[in-house]
Design a protein around this nucleic acid. Structure first.
Length: 451
RNA sequence: GACCCUAUCGUCCAGUGGCCUAGGACACUCCCCUUUCACGGGAGUAACACGGGUUCGAAUCCCGUUAGGGUCGCCA
């Protein structure tokens, strides 16, 4: 029991869940699951003023969306709570007393409490980087002065991150601190705090940061930075999770698409890259598409339903939607594209793309071929893709034309656009009545325009 | 400025002294397939930052340089 791995994700509620943070959470979660340990979520809202309910919700929603669950933390509780720093003041007081008893802290003239830095050489093993040695006496400020003692509590009584972070990790019996590389240089200070407190020092693992594609620092507004944005843009959660797994870690073979269970089984922090990763939305999009392709028509339909509804398409019922979605599924790279591909199946009031109209409908002979095809289709017995194809080709032979000369005008006539699914299948799904009516409507439209 | 980390195609990874005339994926280019758009198939462009060592042999080990990142807060 005492050897159980306990890791945590400890974000501060800033109002967004950053991809870097999400990946840190993911790697912690993977390690916990791989080791059969526990994954905790702790909100670092050092004081009441920082505690913003909606900001916490963003984190909770984002993690859940990615498929990460926590064994202890907000909404699930646990033995080491509360899991909000804003509610842990009494704990910090207790630990501060320990530091005072050891003579490790003093109150400055300004009223702030400071921790006396030992400034001794120090070494620790990092799970991803190996041994790290730091001669603490050599650290200076930008102006060249020796590193000043660390403030752990402000004059107003509120606490500073480094102190509460260490105290909470100890109190919550965290065994492995896996966090961003931005904390690597803070680690010696934290170890000094653990030692002054007489607490066991956890293992540390620092994962590289995620940079923009061009190598610049990724800020909140950069493309791809916010998990909420993926949620809103219809990404498949598993795809984003998959992409994040591959950013700095690899299964060591050539696989790209991997399910979670597989990653859990193979995950090893020692194999995390030490180099900062550059975020590449193209690859993320490609993976997302891979997940879309792998879906059944039913799954795909359900996943696109929110976008279809948001677009106000009167699709009637899910049953009516299925055959249409089946038709266009393979064309879609991103879920929000779905409405644009299916709208004309559910309204007779579809728009004609001016360019398509000009290029195919207005072409010499197009009108005549539409008339010929309409006549031929009126006579078709079984209204299915195979029969429609045969009939169209026969008509083409009769008129000494290429099938394409019928296909293109027919597509535009029936959908208003030049691109779409396979014509015959589209006609089948649309049904005889609607197809014939649309031919007729298009012919009238052409007559009106003097074509 | 000091300290710490890092350095393989544009990007993500593989490579842990010989299997590397460096492999896969994304992106890009070209060709084929094709009723449009996609898909698919095939081909291609493209990298070991630089300089010294060590070694019979180095992308792999060591040192230096350069470059990038991080930290040095009464932010987290």
């Amino acid at each position: 029991m005492s050897s159980e791995v306990r890791v945590r994700f400890a974000p501060s509620p800033t109002g967004m869940l950053h991809v870097g943070g999400a990946r840190t959470a993911l790697f912690n979660w993977l390690y916990a699951r791989h080791m059969g340990g526990k994954f905790l979520l702790r909100i670092e809202d050092t004081d009441r003023a920082r505690h913003v309910e909606e900001a916490v919700q963003v984190i909770v929603d984002g993690l859940r969306w990615l498929g990460l669950d926590w064994d202890e933390g907000p909404e699930v509780g646990g033995d080491c709570g509360p899991y909000f720093q804003s509610e842990r003041g009494a704990v910090y007081e207790r630990y501060l007393e320990r530091l005072q008893a050891a003579g490790a802290v003093y109150v400055g003239e300004d009223g702030a409490t400071r921790f006396r830095l030992p400034r001794k050489p120090l070494e620790f093993g990092d799970m991803v980087r190996g041994r790290i040695f730091v001669d603490r006496g050599k650290s200076t400020t930008p102006s060249g002065d020796p590193e000043p003692d660390m403030t752990i509590r402000r004059a107003d009584g509120s606490w500073i991150f480094h102190f509460v972070n260490v105290v909470d990790d100890a109190e919550m019996r965290v065994t492995h601190v896996i966090r961003g590389e931005d904390h690597l240089s803070n680690t010696p200070k934290h170890i000094e705090l653990y030692e002054a407190l007489g607490l066991p020092v956890p293992r540390f693992g620092h994962i590289p940061l995620i940079l923009n594609r061009d190598g610049s620092k990724m800020s909140k507004r950069d493309q791809g930075a916010s998990i909420t944005a993926y949620m809103e843009q219809g990404y498949v959660p598993a795809a984003v999770r998959n992409y994040l797994c591959l950013l700095g870690w690899s299964p060591k073979d050539d696989r790209e698409k991997m399910d979670l269970a597989e990653v859990v089984e193979r995950f090893d922090p020692a194999n995390i890259n030490r180099k900062a990763a550059h975020f590449d939305l193209d690859k993320c999009n490609w993976l997302n598409w891979q997940y879309l392709v792998a879906m059944s028509v039913e799954e795909f339909t359900d996943a696109s339903l929110p976008w279809i509804e948001r677009a106000g398409i009167a699709y009637g019922s899910r049953a009516a939607l299925l055959p249409v979605v089946a038709l266009i599924k393979e064309k879609i790279k991103q879920l929000p594209e779905v409405p644009g591909w299916i709208d004309y199946f559910f309204t007779e009031d579809y728009a004609y793309d001016p360019e398509a109209e000009l290029k195919t409908l207005a072409k010499p002979g197009a009108r005549d071929r539409l008339v010929q095809l309409e006549a031929a289709y009126q006579a078709v017995e079984a209204w299915d893709a195979a029969a429609l194809e045969l009939q169209l080709k026969a008509t083409a032979v009769q008129q000494a034309c290429k099938p394409a000369e019928f296909i293109h005008p027919a597509r535009v006539a029936v959908s208003g656009r030049a691109v779409g699914p396979s014509l015959y299948h589209m006609l089948e799904v649309l049904g005889r009545d609607r197809v014939l009516a649309r031919f007729q409507k298009t012919l009238e439209r052409l007559a009106l325009r003097g074509v």
